[in-house]
Design a binder for these strands. Structure first.
Lengths: 230, 230
DNA sequence: TATTATTGTCACAAAATGAGACAATAAATA
DNA sequence: TATTTATTGTCTCATTTTGTGACAATAATA
């Protein structure tokens, strides 16, 4: 058997977006006994496609297949090379430095963002981590290495893609109101949108299917429910 | 001295765009005695930033510093792993397979595109290549591995970015006519644009500085020359 | 001097966007 | 039961942007 089944020097990190409580959130893992917070990441097996490696990691953390996933940048600065950080993590997990020596090398990391339906996910930590939880983008813990930078670039890419992709489809449950959809856009863009114009625009796209009204239990007119057309 | 000064498994490829004769062109290298055509690429030194490695390669091939450069995708499929191709190249160059064994491994390639002023460049082949030349996008030779796919994704990214970036600035000489600029846009987008609307739009951006007319020697009204404002 | 090809600009129509207004209505309140 | 409240769906109008063709201007040519 080979020394390691993983490609050296290559890692991936994923920014997994979900939407809940009018907030945009991402999954963050915490390493055992270290207080170190990080994006969910992993390595690529020697006979595995890069994209498949990321999907494998997503499946482990979220239980979901068929996730909306997009690669957005590859981080390759030397400054990312901080072997003492990885060493801390390995030691805190009781792993022998000998066996995992390859993890102490310099890594270039391919970053992806994913959009998932918050309510379908039960976050699951990996072997090195003791938790994997949702954090609001505006209330993140301090992240290790350049992970804060990766998050910020992910958000920027999401904003840039908002116009030409069907982002809402991947962040909302199957049925939602026009208000729900507008909230998603507003939170991603970080600005208020005009209600009338937003509704007109969305309906004009012809991708929404209107269903029966939702008697929400709130003291006002009941909104229609919508779903995305296939 | 170390066995190798390069990170294993990691390469880059660059799609270097230039504009000439109303055509969009890219630089293609040809390997010694093999008939193999490829994108200009290279490897990353163990103590070098990824972006710096790409700029170093660009400098060697074009002689230019300060090039407009953008990373657009990282290709990591197992299907890219074709050791016999690299072996052919090394043997044709009289290199010992022993010394360059690391080159026969699987590589993940980070792809960049660059925009340069065609007229400032004297293409220079690297050590393994016997030529580095401009080819029109619509008349490329057959490229090795997945390089045709890389080119196609580069062009797609360029199109997507056309609206929000100042692409013309990097592909044109310092002074140009409105017609020149329109040609660049048309070739990248692959469609004709309306002259009046294009001119109105560009002037409305407030980034063009108008200079004296150019008495072109053609049988019609002389066009203004423009440059980009800083 | 008339012709030709292309340029700079404009005018108008069509489409998209921004902003406010109004009636409708589910639930809460009196 | 009648009234109030908050939010929804839709409309209208003003503003901006875009699509399209037309016009005069003009450098070189015939």
């Amino acid at each position: 058997m080979k020394q390691t089944a993983y490609l050296r020097h290559i890692a991936y990190d994923s920014v997994i977006f979900g939407f809940s409580g009018e907030k945009l959130k991402i999954l963050i893992t915490k390493y055992h006994n270290t207080g170190l917070f990080a994006l969910p990441g992993g390595f690529v097996k020697v006979d595995e496609n890069l994209n498949d490696a990321v999907r494998r990691g997503l499946k482990e953390r979220t239980g979901l297949d068929n996730i909306y996933l997009e690669q957005f940048y590859t981080f390759g600065d030397v400054a990312r090379f901080r072997p003492e950080v990885m060493q801390t993590i390995l030691e805190a997990n009781g792993h022998s430095i000998q066996t995992y020596e390859w993890m102490l090398d310099r890594f270039i990391s391919v970053a992806y963002y994913a959009l998932i339906n918050y309510s379908e996910v039960v976050p699951t930590p990996d072997a090195l981590s003791d938790s994997c939880d949702w954090y609001s983008l505006d209330d993140l813990p301090e992240l290790m290495l350049d992970h804060a930078n990766i998050v910020s670039k992910a958000l920027q890419t999401l904003r840039d893609n908002l116009e030409r992709q069907l982002v809402g489809m991947n962040l909302l449950p199957p049925f939602f109101t026009m208000g729900d959809l507008q909230k998603v856009y507003e939170v991603i863009l970080g600005e208020k949108l005009h209600r009338g114009a937003f509704q007109r625009k969305m309906l004009g796209l012809g991708i929404l299917k209107r269903h029966d009204k939702q008697y929400s239990g709130a003291a006002h007119k009941a909104p229609f429910l919508y779903s995305f057309e296939a």
